[in-house]
Computed example of a mutant assay.
Amino acid sequence: MAELPVVQPPESVFAGVEVPAAVNAVAAGRSLRPVWRNVLGGLTYEISDTNARYFVKYASSGSGLPLRQEAERLEWAARYTPVPRVVDAGEDEDGFWMLTEALPGLSAVDAKWRANPEKAVQALAYGLSALHQRMPVDECPFDWSVDRRLRGHRDLSGTDPVHGDLPNDEAWRRATDPPPVDKIVVCHGDPCAPNTLIGDDGTWTGHVDMAALGTADRWADLAVCSWSLSWNYGPGWEPLFFDTYGVEPDPERIAYYRLLWDLGS
């Protein structure tokens, strides 16, 4: 399963973590606040001054985090949909960094929206629908198809309990027998709730963390985004999500793409 960002982590998450030299150089004396650290050690900091806010993401060498890949996708997607604009990017012997402008809004899993899940779920669904409608499939140079994803992992360790008792051989057999494609769109690639931003009025304002963006069946996004609702808001929100997006739930495709996600592909 792809890693989820830790939103507004406790101090213990960053205890003993030294700010990378490249991040300090990018901050250039401006206010620097740690925002999250993911399970692979990727770091994100907020940089602010009196005029603007930015975020700098950092991936150490050897971490396997596709930060360079994300920068490429953000630069392409920014022409069509609200995503962080890449201001600069670079690397040194220790790792790769990317500086982006801040978007308005809070993560959909901020305490404000956890306390108002109905608004959050509607914003998630509307935002994903807008993303799928705005980005041109024929012009997208990035691929997130089943064939491409199946070149990745085939391990169910650390999966959701719904797949926990499924032998790896059987999981792989199912993964290599996908349902027919419904509709090809440009997918987010990691559409879990934390990666949608919501404005003060409850409207979707943009998406973040788009390293896997690419063309795929829309159910690759829909299955995972709807799944993440129960992780963040509790059970029972999927009907509202699908109704707001404007599609009837497809149990076969939902089950398939959730398995593929759990396989880490």
Rank of each mutant, 00 (worst) to 15 (best):
D147F: 13
F142Y: 14
V86H: 06
R149T: 13
P161I: 12
A59H: 02
E170K: 08
Q133Y: 00
C140F: 14
A71I: 00
G127N: 02
Y80K: 07
A52I: 02
W172T: 02
R85E: 11
Y126R: 13
G164D: 12
R85M: 14
V109H: 09
D169R: 02
W36R: 07
Q133N: 09
V83I: 14
D169Q: 08
E91Y: 11
L43I: 12
A123P: 04
G127F: 00
R33H: 07
E70S: 01
G42N: 08
V146W: 05
K119A: 15
D49C: 09
A115I: 02
G41A: 05
W113E: 01
Y58E: 08
R151G: 13
L40R: 15
S63L: 11
S107A: 04
D88C: 10
L43D: 01
A171M: 13
D88S: 15
L67D: 11
Y54F: 13
H153C: 10
S145P: 14
L40T: 10
E75H: 09
Y80C: 05
D94L: 05
R173E: 15
L67G: 05
E91I: 07
E101L: 10
H153V: 07
R174V: 06
D160S: 05
T44E: 07
Q69N: 10
L103T: 00
L99V: 05
E46P: 05
V162Q: 11
N116E: 15
S129N: 12
N116G: 04
A52C: 04
V109R: 00
Q69S: 09
G95H: 09
G158H: 12
S129L: 10
L156A: 03
R149Y: 15
V146I: 15
V39R: 12
R33P: 03
V39I: 01
V87Y: 06
F142E: 13
E101W: 00
N51P: 04
E170V: 11
L166G: 03
F96M: 06
R151W: 14
W144F: 15
G152E: 08
D94M: 08
A171R: 14
Y80H: 14
P167Y: 11
A71E: 02
A71G: 00
C140S: 14
D169A: 12
A59F: 03
D169G: 09
K119M: 15
P136L: 03
C140D: 10
V109Y: 09
G62K: 12
